[in-house]
């Protein structure tokens, strides 16, 4: 019984992790049809921002939840102005340019922080479930992710800005005619997406040893999760993360972590072969 709870906890955690690392990419892709291949490096920057801030004496929660998103958000803003805005509507070109950016960011991070593993300690104690000890920080990750998803939903469906943004994404000409500048909306959306990515990087910083190339281990997973989810930002993200999290954890527990990872990837291939438009291309259509 305790074991079942622990397994369930791990499964929920791994789903939350997938949602967390993919959210920024999902927003940017779902809203703007831009695939940001520097996504992983944005997370890496968020991680470094957190570690540097903690090193400078900032409270760790402030560093993770405020400093990291802001830093990466601003970075995203700069990149959007300098590079991405020239490439809207050219999916492949944006992918290539952001790929270049990812290399650039890795290079810069190496220059600044050196190609060495750094990290900070986890700020939360473990707690027992029955006879088992579980990582308390994992619970924190789950909570942060849940709050984040609710917040994205609330902003998109409940606020005026969300309405305008969604309208602009559907008919930018119409939005423009109504007096809203698509250029500015795109810019803000990219900022929001980047900030979410920074949040993910900050929250994960205590869990992993950070190196400048850390981002590369996330990008593939995030990319797969978002594309498999399909066009709808939240429904797509949640459905594909649930599927992949479940598959990978089941195999991780029954065999080992490597088989779990491979199972996730194979699930993605099968899924895309059967549903070439992603999950929300077939199910939950029209949802957000």
């Amino acid at each position: 019984m305790d074991l079942a709870l622990v397994v369930a906890f791990q499964v929920i955690y791994s789903i939350a992790l997938l949602v967390l690392i993919s959210a920024g990419l999902a927003v940017v892709f779902g809203m703007m049809r831009v695939i940001n291949l520097a996504h992983g490096e944005f997370m890496m920057v968020g991680g470094y921002a957190t570690i540097v801030a903690v090193g400078a004496g900032v409270n760790i929660y402030v560093a993770m939840l405020i400093v990291a998103p802001l830093t990466v958000g601003i970075l995203g803003l700069v990149i959007e102005r300098l590079v991405i805005r020239f490439l809207y509507g050219r999916l492949v070109d944006t992918m290539l340019a952001t790929w270049g950016l990812s290399l650039l960011l890795i290079g810069l991070a190496t220059l600044i922080f050196g190609n060495t593993t750094t990290g900070i300690s986890v700020p939360i104690e473990g707690f027992p479930i029955g006879a088992y000890q579980v990582n308390g920080y994992n619970l924190f990750v789950i909570v942060v992710t849940a709050v984040m998803v609710v917040a994205i939903y609330a902003v998109l469906s409940g606020t005026r800005w969300g309405l305008i943004a969604r309208g602009t994404m559907q008919r930018s000409d119409m939005a423009s005619a109504l007096g809203y500048s698509p250029d500015r909306i795109y810019m803000l959306t990219f900022f929001a997406g980047s900030a979410l990515t920074g949040l993910a990087g900050g929250v994960l910083a205590p869990l992993v040893g950070l190196v400048p190339t850390s981002g590369t281990q996330y990008i593939a997973k995030a990319f797969i999760t978002v594309i498999s989810g399909g066009a709808s930002v939240i429904a797509g993200l949640l459905s594909s993360a649930t599927l992949f999290g479940l598959v990978s954890q089941i195999f991780t527990f029954s065999v080992n972590s490597m088989v779990g990872e491979i199972a996730l990837l194979i699930a993605a291939v099968i899924l895309l072969r059967l549903l070439p438009q992603g999950i929300t291309g077939r199910f939950f259509r029209g949802s957000m």
Partner: peptide
């Protein structure tokens, strides 16, 4: 001296923008 990743990344970004 320079990180090769950095230079390659820069080349890629610039070539997408200016030499498509």
């Amino acid at each position: 001296q320079f990180d090769s990743t950095l230079i390659l990344g820069l080349i890629l970004v610039l070539s997408v923008l200016f030499l498509p």
